[in-house]
Design a protein around this nucleic acid. Sequence first.
DNA 1: CGTGCCAGGTGCCTT
DNA 2: AAGGCACTTGGCACG
Lengths: 245, 245
Amino acid sequence: MDAQILSERLSTDLGERKTTVLTCSCSIEYWGRSRSVIGCGDRIILFKPDSTVIVHSPRGFKPVNWMSSPTDTSADLEDGRTVVFSQRTVKPYEEMKITVDKVIEYTSLPGLRDEEKIDVTHTERDMRDYLEKHPREVHPDFRLKTVEHHITPGFIDLYGKIGDRYVVVELKAVKAGLPAVLQLKRYRDWLREKLRQPIHAILMAPGIAKNPHTLLKKEGMEFKKFNVHKLEIKKEKNTLEKWMN
Amino acid sequence: MDAQILSERLSTDLGERKTTVLTCSCSIEYWGRSRSVIGCGDRIILFKPDSTVIVHSPRGFKPVNWMSSPTDTSADLEDGRTVVFSQRTVKPYEEMKITVDKVIEYTSLPGLRDEEKIDVTHTERDMRDYLEKHPREVHPDFRLKTVEHHITPGFIDLYGKIGDRYVVVELKAVKAGLPAVLQLKRYRDWLREKLRQPIHAILMAPGIAKNPHTLLKKEGMEFKKFNVHKLEIKKEKNTLEKWMN
DNA sequence: CGTGCCAGGTGCCTT
DNA sequence: AAGGCACTTGGCACG
């Protein structure tokens, strides 16, 4: 495809907010939060109706370059080449310039519709909801008092008591690292200071890294394994029980 | 496009590791680290030669679903519909199932080549390299001893002295938050314990959030503004000076 | 709008 | 493989 034709078609199609896929050989420059340059190579450029621009190389998950909506994106002819210039209209201000060397494929589609929202489960939120209903899985004697209990340094996932001892529970849906342990320690220390009594701290996660675990133990806190995948089994059990009643 | 034709073309093209873009109305299920479901909507599906699969809805930056290489991805005909099944062959094990309702557009391209590596600058690494050469911008009297100085709790970005006082410098290319302050505090406290003497701690970043700044000051540590964008100016100045000599 | 924090985070590099 | 950490992190919810 001729550079002038491409420039005109892009201008028209972007103006009409069509979903456009341009496969081409191109080089790209980016200025903004950081700065990047990449030389000529074959890439797939996706222009979305909401003005998002995403550039994919033939390898890997992550786009090689991108511009997040809202952007002003336009195509021009410069020295016989099509140049796509995209500019973010709000903070953070960013710019991307794509210089097209050779068009491989061009497709533009109007009126794509997707009203659906994705439903993601097996997340930390689900873990919290589940343990709110099954506090015994935290500890046989755990009595839950508050979920998302707000204190000065942040939010405690689960707050309650075992016997007469207050308990702080921090939840992680993925393997816990240092930040999780530090966060729990901060809550524990703050409460201990506030209530002037020992506080029991429990970190629940499918796993914990080695150094964080060392620190956890040294600080007298507890790790309890909880895999979010078991939620599936529980749910099915629950459904089965319901069906049997 | 007929479902059977699509299944056959996809099987062929994926088998030949062609870069393929399928625009279609589809529903998607995902099982793996989490679980997700999304009903029927128009989406752009990108199949890369390295077996990466990325599904984009017409809105937003983030893919609605994806599978990271390496995957086994294949297309089949089920109840008169094309079903794409993608499975990760290594940990973490994951699966994605796309049920195609209606094909809107199909493009498959062989032999896309991109040998270029992106060059990203104005990053924390550049900040460190720059300050290594210009330690006076940390403090007029700062004498740098070690870059990426390894101690038990982690790596100190810049380690040196001001007068006879040891100095720990933590760098952030973006606005500093609580984790940055806690990290610096950990290094400072560890060194103070180890060397049994007061340690000066400096956090250099383009900005710092309010609460973290309060904690920083309370702990007797210092914040010094450093914007990575100034590197550009410095570099240009440097080039200019070189050119003038 | 800034702040905090989860995410199917991803990617890179070191042990 | 696991750990640690930056990232143009993105996204959301809350003050």
